[in-house]
Design a binder for these strands. Sequence first.
DNA 1: TTGGTTTATGATCTAGGAAGCATACTGACA
DNA 2: TGTCAGTATGCTTCCTAGATCATAAACCAA
Lengths: 83, 83
Amino acid sequence: MDQIARTTKDFGNVLRQARKAQNLTQAELGSRAGIWQRTISNIETSASGAKVDTIFDLLAALNLELHIVPRSKIKPADLEDIF
Amino acid sequence: MDQIARTTKDFGNVLRQARKAQNLTQAELGSRAGIWQRTISNIETSASGAKVDTIFDLLAALNLELHIVPRSKIKPADLEDIF
DNA sequence: TTGGTTTATGATCTAGGAAGCATACTGACA
DNA sequence: TGTCAGTATGCTTCCTAGATCATAAACCAA
């Protein structure tokens, strides 16, 4: 379960994971965050490059926050591709 | 030096810090990331809600990545306002 | 305080995100 | 296999970020 994002694709995956971990449907999360189910679907599937405001609304609704940190040499999620 | 962001304002501040820590001007960072100085200024001052793609371009140019984590009860940067 | 560097900001134009509503698809389950 | 919850997606309208060029304002050092 990796919560590191370097691309919008990563980000969509992490958001979906987080949402499911909290047993929320896209619609539920949407009404919490004031965002449409349509939009959440787009973000999770990286069908569009979302706006940062939208992202922060989602993160708040999921009680998450962003930490901006130096890149580690290898992204943990990629380890399994190596070993 | 806090690298936690919950709002676009936080985010702008963190980005500015990170850029300065690497001794880059907005223009330099811009040419690295393929983004206009104008745009970076907007983002750092949160004059506009940027797009996620733009953010990831900037983070890559600064060799940073995002970690999505549960919110801590108190944002470290706010401690100084309390004590 | 002046000259040079860095950052902020005005204006226009285009591409595309989100709202809003509806519907199609998909997987699970009785 | 028919139903239903959940997710994907079509479409139009509105709004705005970013590109692009230009200039003003702020900062800093000599």
